[in-house]
Computed example of a mutant assay.
Amino acid sequence: MLLADEPTNHLDLDAVTALEELLCNYPGTLIFTTHDRRLLKTIAKNLLVFEGTKLNFFPRPYDDYSNKQICTEYTEATADILLIENKLAEIISRLNLNPTEKLEVEFQSLLAKNVFYYQNNHLDLQNSLHWSNSAVKI
């Protein structure tokens, strides 16, 4: 997982273009804050947006958000999804370092919960992280 705070600040256009290319090809989870709308359009697949005193989860690219075509309120269910996906990322890292049957069972359980939340909250699984492709079998 890569965390970045305003990654394009103080960069010239060539450096921004190079950074965007690197981030587009980054294979892991990327969480970043930015005011750079071009970076949002190029990189972001899902958004967490502060709107007044609310935090809203928007499981679509920035263009959809800026056009206000579809808006998914940040709810307890979407908070659960984010928590589950963070735990999945952690477990995948641990499975890669030291695979155990217990971790595999925990991974499969969280994966099932993730799919359940997406289906029951009518969210698009195409926008979820594709954990089934990352599963490590021991």
Rank of each mutant, 00 (worst) to 15 (best):
M1H: 14
A4D: 11
D5G: 00
E6F: 04
L13D: 10
V16M: 12
V16E: 12
A18V: 10
L19A: 06
E20P: 13
E21V: 11
L23C: 05
L23M: 15
C24A: 12
C24M: 14
N25M: 04
N25Q: 15
Y26Q: 04
L30R: 00
I31T: 00
H35Y: 12
D36G: 08
L39D: 08
L39H: 10
T42P: 11
I43G: 04
A44M: 10
K45N: 11
K45W: 10
N46S: 08
N46L: 13
E51M: 06
E51A: 03
G52V: 04
L55V: 13
L55C: 13
P59E: 07
P59A: 00
P59G: 09
R60S: 01
D64L: 03
Y65D: 01
N67V: 01
K68A: 04
K68P: 01
K68E: 12
Q69P: 02
I70A: 05
C71Y: 11
T72Q: 09
E73P: 15
E73K: 07
T75H: 03
T78L: 07
T78H: 06
I81L: 10
I81Y: 05
L82M: 06
L83S: 04
I84R: 08
E85S: 09
K87Q: 13
L88T: 04
A89R: 09
I91Y: 11
I92H: 10
S93H: 12
S93I: 02
N96E: 11
L97Q: 06
N98I: 03
P99V: 01
P99F: 02
P99Y: 00
E101H: 06
L103R: 00
F107H: 04
F107I: 02
S109I: 03
L110C: 05
L111W: 00
N114E: 00
V115S: 06
V115W: 01
V115R: 01
F116G: 02
Y118G: 00
Q119A: 07
N120R: 13
N121W: 03
N121P: 11
L123E: 07
L123N: 11
L123M: 07
D124P: 10
L125T: 08
Q126I: 11
N127L: 00
S128M: 10
L129H: 05
N133W: 12
S134Y: 11
